[in-house]
Design a protein around this nucleic acid. Structure first.
Lengths: 223, 223
DNA sequence: ATAGCTTTGCGTCAAAATAACACAAAGACC
DNA sequence: GGTCTTTGTGTTATTTTGACGCAAAGCTAT
């Protein structure tokens, strides 16, 4: 069998929208570029695909080496192929998003220097390349995903309360949901399982602690 | 600004799942390969991206030159990057699907030779490369799409009847839907507009002719 | 301890959406 | 005209949804 003589091929990159949720805010992780182009502007983390890698390997490499994170939920999004999206030459990016509970990876001076920062998705700065577009598309994708697949637990602790899950959904979907109807739909869907425990040390009534139903493959929620 | 010295890059291809609907059957268009690898096996049409092209241009080129079709609805799907998916070397494919009303492009001996053929999606032969997987994913994507965006009209004539639309949905979703409830949901959604005309020359009662509401950007149907 | 406040869990009810089905009108065929 | 099939319209019971009432749990101040 002949091995095809490669055409001239564009560079292929994996770009990452890393979502984190803490203190009731949905954020994404951005890098400040220290080289041209877009020097001193914030961009999404990313890297070029190496010949022996799969795209998810490239993502894992970026997460590990640039951000000190591993073992994250990863989802592939669409491919950005506008010819002038990178002024250095033809580069095509396959976007991905990752979901991370920031509590798992403390921001240290070492790994998380001045050039790495969480930004509230509602207050993003103008990003370099076409990363504004990629970030906006990723958020839409996450909003859709969370209604049909049980991914919220990737952003929360293993044990969480109903009000915490409620706030997460309101935050990601950017809508307000009646807390009693939310409870009913989530429980009816079998989305989560009560552990019988309660969160201690809070003000007022102590909420029940739940864990996700890991047997669930897909759900259907509408708010 | 420095132009980046390209890494060694994998080949990048656009692979196409061309959906057509006729005689109540949803089909996809396959090519019979006349060279190794997978010689004499059926595969999806596709081509490598040229440096000056966008992916949709590559798709249009394949549709025009290999299949004699143009001006089709085109949607990008996900990217297939398994390292051994092409035995000739590292090749990454961005899958797309196209929707076509086969009535617009008659199958002629010239353009649609023995090596191009429509296959019922429910009776696909084993495909070369990882195209079984791509075709299956594309169908899932179409099933989802048709519930949320008005794309059915891409597969039908400009004027169509309620029973025709009903059969299309049953066929694509592979479920049976009560015809009276279907009518109510479609009309309530403002999905289609009655033209006042009727389809003539058929058996029994002549059904009303409708056209799609082109102002509609998205819909929400559940069956 | 008790009153007052906030948060959480549970329940109610009317409105809307859905599924299942009855029936009549239109048109073809005998 | 009678019969059959297909299409258009309507009805009803059930389920789902949205809006909200209320009491229990737990903290704080007196």
């Amino acid at each position: 069998m002949p091995s095809f003589s490669s055409y001239k091929n564009p560079s292929l990159a994996a770009d990452l929208v890393v979502f984190g949720y803490q203190q009731g805010i949905l954020s994404i992780l951005l890098l400040n570029r220290n080289t041209e182009p877009f020097k001193d502007q914030w961009v999404l983390p990313g890297a070029f695909l190496l010949m022996e890698e799969r795209l998810r390997d490239t993502c894992a490499r970026v997460l590990k080496t640039k951000l000190g994170m591993d073992d994250l939920y990863l989802e592939q999004l669409c491919t950005y192929d506008e010819p002038n999206r990178d002024p250095r030459g033809r580069a095509i990016a396959v976007a991905h998003y990752a979901l991370v509970n920031p509590a798992r990876f403390a921001i240290t001076a070492g790994t998380m220097a001045n050039d790495v920062k969480w930004f509230n998705v509602k207050e993003l700065p103008g990003l370099g390349f076409d990363h504004d577009l990629i970030a906006a598309d990723a958020l839409k994708s996450l909003q859709h995903k969370i209604l049909h697949y049980p991914v919220g637990f990737e952003l929360l602790n293993d044990l969480f309360t109903m009000p915490e899950l409620h706030a997460l959904y309101e935050c990601i979907l950017d809508i307000s949901i009646d807390r009693r109807n939310f409870r009913r739909k989530i429980l009816d869907a079998g989305y989560i399982i009560s552990t019988g425990k309660k969160r201690e040390g809070l003000h007022n009534r102590h909420p029940d602690l739940y864990e996700f139903n890991k047997e669930l493959k897909s759900i259907h929620l509408s708010f």
